[in-house]
Design a protein around this nucleic acid. Structure first.
Lengths: 206, 206
DNA sequence: GCGGAAGTGTACCGACCAGTCGAGATACTT
DNA sequence: AAGTATCTCGACTGGTCGGTACACTTCCGC
């Protein structure tokens, strides 16, 4: 079910306990990366917060960059699962767009550190890994575009530029990573509803 | 006129030529930081792209972080000048909001590298410098909020939450730093107009 | 053309970087 | 109880980091 597809499956299959500990490390490290930045964080620091020596630490991760990729995977997986759920639910384009916002803000709200890292440090990924994540991200953008296009075709939305409008929608939602936090006063729903109201009124067929 | 107010004016006043060369270095370095990241970029690399040895380089900047602050200053100055222009122009809240978008996107379009650095690397600023920029940023956010509040009071906008709505507006506009580039097919105006259309329709009094 | 300031290159510094290694501890299997 | 795989440690390595020291050149007022 988790099955991070980053490494090309050449890893020697580990125990459940190992996986659990690794997940812990990935999550804890995401917090440190979010607060101090990827390059500004040293391996020694990650060892400290995880309560491990270097040897043990490298027993769970292959490299610092592989750890970064694992954080990316976590958040991207969640976002995609949410998007799939919306597609399965069906409904009018406006309802789909609202649901998409619900799901996206829910992920940002639940994984603020991972999302921060995802949005800030993706340039630190090299070569094929970078390309892979750019492609997944592009795929999500296309989903939003598709919903908008469907709304335009059905006349529910006015004749806006789907690409530009998708970017506006993404910006509005993604930017919440700066202030939407689990402990905060507002929940994901508290934000998603007014955002959907603004956006859907904004593009509704005149 | 530029008079970066970062250092507390204890610097010994330099010649115009020195200032010009320094500005060049700040701008060029912004490009490198934007592409490779602040921490990932070494001083040696900055020296190379600027065609200087380390000695000459440190003749123009005090430290790597001071250089980062100078980049922040540049973009923040521009944004604030734009906001002031809007205040002076006056007009209905909806017109003000549209102008604010025009100005903001213009800055993002003209200084994409600086803006990238500003939005990505501000956590790298330490202590008082960080606080100073956080305050300036907060000041800009309050301006947007004030325009929204004025629109709500006058009945031009419906009864939305000003803070939440300001954050939505900021997200929508700021996020363009990822794809709005000087060489690109779309100009700042091409984006600002549709964005203002969406947003103002979205919050217009029912 | 002389003298000092402005500008520049390079060798160098201690600190720290990501990552390795080999040995020891612990836990699981039989 | 023995044997093996998993897990953990911290010293260590080669290299790079931001920044400094200092000698040198170039420029400009006199």
């Amino acid at each position: 079910m988790p099955a991070t597809p980053t490494a090309t499956s050449d890893e020697p299959r580990r125990s459940a306990k190992w996986q659990a500990r690794r997940d812990e490390i990935v999550d804890t490290s995401a917090g440190v990366f979010a607060q101090r930045g990827y390059h500004a964080t040293g391996i020694a620091e990650l060892c400290t917060v995880n309560g491990l020596g270097k040897g043990a630490f490298y027993h769970y991760i292959q490299s610092k960059e592989e750890l970064l990729a694992a954080i990316h995977d976590r958040v991207m997986d969640e976002v995609m699962v949410g998007a799939d759920r919306v597609v399965r639910a069906g409904g009018a384009p406006s309802a789909q767009l609202a649901m998409l916002g619900d799901e996206l803000l829910d992920v940002i709200h639940r994984y603020p550190d991972h999302v921060w890292v995802f949005l800030h440090e993706f340039p630190a990924l090299t070569a094929e890994r970078a390309e892979q994540f750019r492609e997944r991200r592009r795929g999500y953008e296309r989903r939003v575009e598709a919903v908008l296009q469907a709304g335009i075709d059905s006349g529910e939305f006015r004749d806006v530029d789907p690409r530009l409008t998708a970017l506006a929608w993404l910006g509005m939602h993604n930017y919440t990573y700066l202030w939407l936090k689990p402990g905060g006063r507002v929940s994901a729903r508290d934000v998603a509803k007014p955002f959907a109201d603004i956006f859907i009124r904004g593009i509704r067929g005149s």
